[in-house]
């Protein structure tokens, strides 16, 4: 298994061969089926894919908040945990989801913001008291200091009249302000990794631009690693340093943002990029499409999960073997692809 160019910086978070399955009564859903990636401090990693690709479950797995009847069945989530001024590498997949370490990490060192901040805030408490609560969960601050810190955080995310806003309820804020407040709450414990799950999907474009701007600026100021989960390729191109493309629970391609957008290798990545209309592409002409639809999770195709929609399908190979994520070639190790167009099947299954 190759990983992205090692040696530069020690990655904060390394996910290796993560598998998270769900076991409802009807059968097994392989929501995440072997995801591997890593992210360094100050960097933004984009996880991109369509519905059912497992991008959100991946994020939830990292934070160990996968809902019943799901669970991590295999893989490692290596995280550089900071404790007593030292850094210890912990495998989050192995430790208890409710144990002291995980509680310290979740919301403390790794924070998360969600698509719909309305449901992330309690409707019956003012947002201020919820942010104060979050602050005090991960720091020894007293009530008054915590409240001051909360106001500071709101100012930091660009909310005017911060003191007054602390007393408002989530429903009183507009979508954009709620998302800012959500980010403020996530920042309360000065996280080292921020996972943003579709942070702008529910927002309008002008508000989206504001929030993306804010995230970028916060990253510059605080040096966080950001994992940005989205289906919007524009947002990915705008924000990310490295990109992971997922399809039906598997990583199909991984590389620098420039490589993914300007030199995509996997047929899925290529088709996805071509099929979206752009402000610069020619109008009112047929777009290239990906045939078919995303299969139902119970109906996963054998072999490569994309083979039945793939225009470059190799009979006898793609439908029999599962491709592994491998570096494109020996020297250029910063682009990984999981496709038999680029390497031979390595497994012996037939």
């Amino acid at each position: 298994m190759a990983t992205l160019a090692a040696g530069k910086r020690r990655p904060l978070l390394r996910v290796h061969n993560l598998k998270t399955y769900f076991f409802p009564d009807e059968g097994t859903v392989r929501a995440v089926d072997g995801a591997s990636f890593e992210v360094c401090a100050g960097q933004t990693l984009g996880i991109v894919g369509e519905s059912g690709c497992g991008k959100s479950v991946t994020a939830r797995s990292i934070l160990r908040i996968v809902e019943h009847p799901g669970g991590i069945v295999e893989g490692e989530i290596r995280y550089l945990h900071r404790t007593d001024g030292r850094e210890v590498e912990l495998d989050l997949a192995q430790i208890s989801a409710d144990g002291p370490e995980m509680r310290q990490i979740r919301g403390g060192e790794i924070a998360m913001i969600f698509q719909e901040p309305m449901t992330s805030f309690s409707p019956v408490h003012p947002i201020g008291s919820q942010i104060v609560e979050a602050i005090r969960l991960h720091s020894p601050l007293g009530k008054r200091e915590a409240r001051e810190r909360a106001a500071d955080l709101l100012r930091q995310v660009g909310i005017s009249r911060a003191e007054a806003r602390l007393n408002e309820y989530a429903y009183q804020l507009s979508g954009g302000l709620r998302q800012r407040a959500m980010i403020a709450m996530a920042l309360s414990a000065e996280p080292r990794v921020l996972i943003a799950d579709e942070p702008t999907t529910a927002l309008d474009v002008t508000t989206q631009a504001q929030i993306l701007d804010l995230l970028r600026q916060l990253q510059t100021d605080l040096g966080m690693a950001i994992i940005l989960i989205t289906h919007n390729l524009g947002v990915v191109a705008e924000m990310c340093d490295t990109v992971v493309v997922m399809y039906l629970g598997r990583v199909v391609e991984e590389g620098s943002v420039d490589a993914i957008f300007h030199n995509p290798k996997h047929p899925y990545t290529r088709l996805l990029l071509q099929s979206i209309p752009s402000l610069y592409s020619e109008a009112r002409v047929p777009l290239p499409t990906i045939s078919g639809a995303i299969p139902h999770p119970y109906n996963r195709p054998e072999g490569c999960p994309f083979h039945d929609r793939c225009p470059q399908f190799i009979p006898g190979t793609c439908d029999r073997h599962v491709p592994e994520l491998q570096a494109l070639d020996e020297e250029k190790s910063d682009q990984l692809v999981s496709c038999f167009l680029y390497h031979e099947p390595t497994d012996e299954r037939a």
Partner: peptide, 25 residues
């Protein structure tokens, strides 16, 4: 103008300074 400028373009080489509108609708 601001609306057009806010659209994130699926091309990392075209990142640029956006007109970020202040305030709310």
């Amino acid at each position: 103008e601001a609306l057009l400028s806010s659209v994130p373009e699926p091309d990392p080489r075209r990142r640029s300074q956006r007109i970020v509108l202040e305030g709310e609708v």
